[in-house]
Nucleic acid binder design. Structure first.
Lengths: 134, 134
DNA sequence: CGTTCTGTAATAGTAAACATTACAGATAAG
DNA sequence: CTTATCTGTAATGTTTACTATTACAGAACG
């Protein structure tokens, strides 16, 4: 799994503490220790899903649109990393009963894991993450 | 996450269908589509934890020791991949309240996720995986 | 109309995963 | 007692995934 999920959480938490004005991708990237372009890529996903809005040009940047308690970590996971737990099975042997069926079985198990994980992540909203950070 | 976890499941499932004789790392690797050395590495972990035993030399290989319903996927996960969900946070900015605290917060959340996932994985034993494969 | 931003593609660099080679040691069979 | 077979493990090479960097078009604002 790449770190888009954690970067998204970091960015939204950052924005959550700056709801009165817009934050630039550079300011967020300095907080997170990554390149501004990555921040813009991740945030463009979050924008598409209506969590934040952005503005170009002087004084522009990113800002929260929703209430902090409306956004939970499962929403963010689905946007940034859904399916990331699914194992990448190499070409196994179709002539072996195990090789021929393992991918299907593993995929169904990991799908269940992800759904189950979702139930847990839904309990965390950005508001709660902010409280933990403070 | 690497695929040690899924390779371990694949290998144990393979062994579960050959409980009367030993299987070589090459036979298992052909089923799983990976290099025999990787199989031996993963299986050496499982051996240390008493799930299987091995024998060198002619007629040697790997064989199940425990009952199939004694081994569940959480046991296997812990051996092969515990902590793999923990995000690798780059050096974030200590002068920013978010950067300074995010790693700690994320680690505690992901630790909880892993524990919660464990409750789910405990429900799957190798016996059940075998039934799904067949 | 120049400056400051986002948006996004294209390229380069780095790190993690995986394969391969090599060889020592154990075991069984001839 | 020697040869073939197999595990155990380290060392090295290769590939793939992730991340950084560069580049530039387009929007907003003074």
């Amino acid at each position: 799994m790449n770190s888009d999920f954690t970067l998204a959480i970091h960015s939204l938490t950052f924005l959550a503490l700056q709801t009165d004005r817009m934050s630039t991708s550079e300011a967020i990237s300095e907080s997170a220790g990554v390149h501004p372009v990555r921040i813009r890529k991740v945030l463009s996903l979050l924008k598409k899903h209506g969590f934040i809005k952005s503005k170009e040009g002087t004084g522009g940047g990113f800002i929260f649109v929703l209430d902090l308690s409306e956004v939970n970590l499962w929403d963010i996971y689905k946007i940034t990393s859904e399916g990331a737990l699914k194992p990448k099975c190499p070409d196994s042997n179709e002539n072996c009963i195990v090789g021929a069926n393992m991918e299907r079985v593993l995929c169904s198990i990991f799908f269940g894991v992800e759904e189950h994980m979702g139930e847990y992540l839904k309990e965390y909203t950005i508001k709660e993450v902010v409280n933990l950070v403070k």
